[in-house]
Nucleic acid binder design. Structure first.
Lengths: 330, 330
DNA sequence: GTGAAAGCGCTAACAA
DNA sequence: TTGTTAGCGCTTTCAC
């Protein structure tokens, strides 16, 4: 391994001078600076972040904990975040919690051990309060994304309740009355059922509790959904995530429901394939969300943040799609 | 920050003893061991990987460079790799190269600076030979995934040429003659066009070069593809990646081609939505691929690897799908 | 079974 | 403008 010392020896100067050149600080004579740069280049010097981090106490790294590694929706959010932090010269270190509080704990410890400068997470539970406090004590900014598990920590969420309201209203308007609401049984998310209820109430319609189905995260539910449809006979379905959307479509296929087409369906998290299938979707403003999240983190890192807890909530919108010839319920 | 020293002071012992306990080494009296553990717990001690890495020269971290952050296919591969390494107690640090050799260089340097123990990458070019050599010199194992840019480095690839052969043969069998091949213009991939040609030859059919279209990575090509279809009038299309598949479907919609349905199409990289749309796909054995890749890395880390260059190639399979009533070309 | 001490590669305070 | 030095938190001899 080539170290500062090696470069210094090569040039015949001191480690600190080389360090200054490498970090682009002033106060080095141009001539020396050039020779040092040359030597770095020819020796193939690469700095050692472990040493840097140890010495400076910071890592230029943002930790991000993603709750579901298999959900494209989270992956695309992650993609945007990584991009934005890249622009600000921050590395990103990702950890996956698999919607499991224990693993979440391990991952938080791992990221702390890596000396992250800030943490963005989609919390799985509120059981890691202890670690959250440790992180606060170290003055590491935290932002919760998509869910608010800890009330005293900044958060950026989507108003899923409103999303459900939009979806439900839309379907009611189309003449559907037995609308099923499928959602993942995850805590700390703004409750979709709340908006669903509101839409029913505003339309003076009676709602059946049994049309609300909560499912555990991180597995396929096609069979369960098909049984549910058979038993409860909904005339429309709102799928609370893109993955549940896929499961619902599979269930429909399983059951060979000929009249149950895409117009009976609204799926959360707009994805490219929904456009192709002409399925209406609740589109999350991921870009905006990421922007706010990054903004909060950078503000906090630069000490610009307010003493109060920031809670930001962005509003989803309904994307109505229909095939020509389709439309009102017949 | 709570350090080993703090814990040692609390217990009234030395740093080295605490270190032994924390790392689960023997040679500490049970009674002392317990007290140390207690103290770690109550003080909330978290080890510092920077210090550990600096001292030991290794990081328990595998670096992975993904070439396209927006491609679900790579994301799902990444998901599997992360899972597998987790089982083996390795962290994963991800870098994204955005299909750009310059960024790839930066990312490689970043990962090296982080002292990764091994590197898995989907190389974008062969222009980073210099860094590859540095990595080799540091005895850090490297595995190339999906592409072989450096012949002297281990690799695990998919036989895309064979995939194209399967897709083309299938379409020819269905009666199509003017089959377009759309692929991303990326170097070092087994050439799809080779299998495409072979299928034409075996069927004693004349192939038109102009039906082969190469497109740059990392943008949408719907318009370009629609122009291409208008001009060249193919009667079937093979899309070389899932993203090109989406673009092709959009192009078909743009052109309102009524008779050009899913049966005229084969898309590389099987994705859940293709099942829903009944689109035939060339399915990559991602799980197997990841397994081989992880195996190679672990072998190398444990010194079990052979002196020769490992080149593994896995074979894709064709998943034929059809709606009832569809089938042979009419 | 336990502790003292050196040093991994780097930065920052200070001295020259 | 440059060099010397101490020390970040940890592991690893080596001595006891």
């Amino acid at each position: 391994m080539v170290t500062l010392r090696d470069v210094a020896r090569e040039v015949g100067t001191s480690e600190s001078t080389v360090s200054r050149v490498v970090r682009g600080l002033g106060n080095v004579k141009p001539e020396l600076r050039e020779r040092v740069k040359q030597a770095c280049e020819s020796l193939g010097y690469i700095p050692d972040f472990s040493a840097q981090n140890l010495r400076t106490g910071k890592s230029n790294t943002i930790g991000i904990i993603v709750s579901d590694i298999n959900n494209h929706f989270y992956n695309s959010t992650l993609g945007i975040l990584v991009n934005k932090f890249r622009e600000h010269k921050y590395q990103v270190q990702v950890g996956y919690s698999y919607e499991n509080g224990e693993i979440e704990k391990e991952v938080m410890e791992m990221l702390l051990a890596n000396r992250i400068d800030a943490l963005i997470m989609t919390p799985v539970s509120n059981q890691n309060r202890r670690l959250i406090d440790t992180i606060k004590k170290r003055n590491i900014p935290i932002v919760q994304l998509y869910r608010t598990a800890y009330r005293d920590i900044d958060s950026v969420c989507v108003d899923d309740s409103h999303g459900a309201y939009l979806a439900t209203s839309h379907l009611i308007e189309r003449g559907y009355r037995r609308i099923a609401l499928l959602s993942v049984n995850v805590q700390f998310t703004p409750h979709r059922s709340e908006g669903y209820r509101r839409a029913y109430e505003e339309n003076h319609l009676q709602l059946e509790e049994e049309l609300i189905l909560k499912l555990p995260p991180d597995t396929s539910h096609a069979e369960e959904i098909s049984r549910f449809i058979t038993r409860k006979k909904p005339d429309a379905v709102i799928a609370g995530t893109n993955l549940l959307g896929v499961d619902t479509l599979k269930a429909i296929e399983l059951l060979q429901l000929k009249d149950f087409d895409e117009s009976h369906l609204v799926i959360f998290d707009d994805m490219p394939w929904m456009e192709l299938l002409k399925i209406s979707a609740v589109s999350q403003p991921v870009e905006l969300l990421a922007e706010k999240c990054v903004g909060m983190v950078l503000d906090a890192l630069e000490g610009h943040s307010s003493p109060e807890v920031n809670k930001d909530r962005v509003v989803p919108r309904l994307v109505v799609r229909e095939r020509k010839g389709s439309g009102e319920k017949t």
